[in-house]
Write a protein that binds this DNA or RNA. Structure first.
Lengths: 205, 205
DNA sequence: CGTTCCATACCGACCGGTTGGTATGCCTCC
DNA sequence: GGAGGCATACCAACCGGTCGGTATGGAACG
């Protein structure tokens, strides 16, 4: 994404960046304006409140993430199992760079707002669960292909992948080591492989 | 835990409760004092800053959680695999009650402080990774018992369980449904069963 | 074509209230 | 009597949000 032209987009991008690093409540409107190179007047011209900005930012963040996944190469793989594993591999690849640039805006914000701002909570739910839903068709096809129907729902496994990713971010933040997130994604990949590989060989003696 | 006697403990317990519901930055010192039934003077008598209170609260939270696990019945199971699965089952059982009373203080706080307060981040790391470490011996024994050595480290699987739990909390907060957390813990249990059951039967035709 | 008119985009000083933190003194219990 | 344990009163900085005002540009009208 090239630097956004309009003040509105600059504010959204700045908010996503700063909030991912500092959290929602700890980020002031002035700080977002400074990061966006825009005045406070412009802020409240485009958004009625800080909360409204956050809601719009969650939608923008989700749209960007969904678009990135929709055009990624793993989407072309013929086997749905490979597409599911390809998604996890892609998410693992994206773990390069500073922590604040790889973590999830919605996951960060919802922790601080779920009990105090229903609208913001709902926007974060839409971002996370909407993204999970883009996996559901592949998971369902993979389960059918491997005869796994009935053990659990495709939706629940799709949401579980998001839960693991969110949890991986927390471990990474706590340890200040992106490697901790990679570790968890490796376990997630192993889980999916065990699920979608109907029979494991005995270990060679 | 009975209502704490000293003002210091009342402040710690109140902080854990309020912060789990609202987040760290969004919770004011006055609010914590009100919840604890204590004045601001008492607060700054016992803690030099809000940050210091949070660090002490993280340690208290971790100590409580560790103690709860150390005395839980699943600890008496003879098979280390059963103890590992028992831990996950126990954590799933604890998911009853309001969201703010079952989630993790350290996981909530670290999201807002990892980049701005090194000391607080380290305290949350100690809480989460210290708790993970209590699982490590059982996981290592379980891996040895099932011939899984070398595929991954016991420490990484221990941390992964914590990541899944943290991620489950985020999904639950986003959807306002504790059931979403249960769902993820069920997938975690399935992963551990697949790992520690060396050979799966074919599905009956 | 020129002028009027109005909507949109944006500016930055300002406001009341809240924030984390301080200064000081009382009151109990050794 | 003095040393912790707490309450009251207070402060400067900062917060989200408001407000009067300006710049610009396109449509309407003559």
């Amino acid at each position: 994404m090239p630097p956004a032209a309009t003040a509105r987009d600059k504010l959204l991008d700045a908010a996503i960046g700063v909030v991912r690093a500092q959290g929602y409540a700890a980020t002031s409107v002035d700080e977002i304006c400074r990061a966006a190179g825009v005045t406070k007047g412009a802020f409240f011209h485009h958004f009625p409140s800080k909360e409204a900005l956050a809601i719009a930012a969650a939608a923008r963040f989700a749209a960007t993430a969904d678009a990135l996944c929709a055009t990624a190469p793993y989407r072309e793989l013929p086997d749905p199992v490979d597409r599911v594993l390809g998604y996890v591999a892609q998410r693992r690849d994206w773990l390069r760079g500073p922590l604040a640039e790889v973590t999830c805006f919605a996951g960060t914000v919802v922790q601080e707002s779920y009990a105090t701002s229903p609208a913001l909570r709902a926007a974060c739910e839409a971002a996370i669960c909407g993204h999970a839903a883009t996996l559901e068709a592949d998971i369902e096809a993979a389960m059918r292909a491997r005869g796994l129907a009935g053990q659990f729902t495709p939706a629940s496994l799709a949401r579980h992948t998001q839960a693991v990713i969110q949890g991986a971010f927390i471990l990474a933040k706590a340890t200040d080591e992106v490697a901790m997130a990679e570790e968890s994604l490796d376990h997630l990949r192993r889980y999916l492989e065990l699920l979608f590989t109907p029979k494991r060989k005995e270990m060679p003696a």
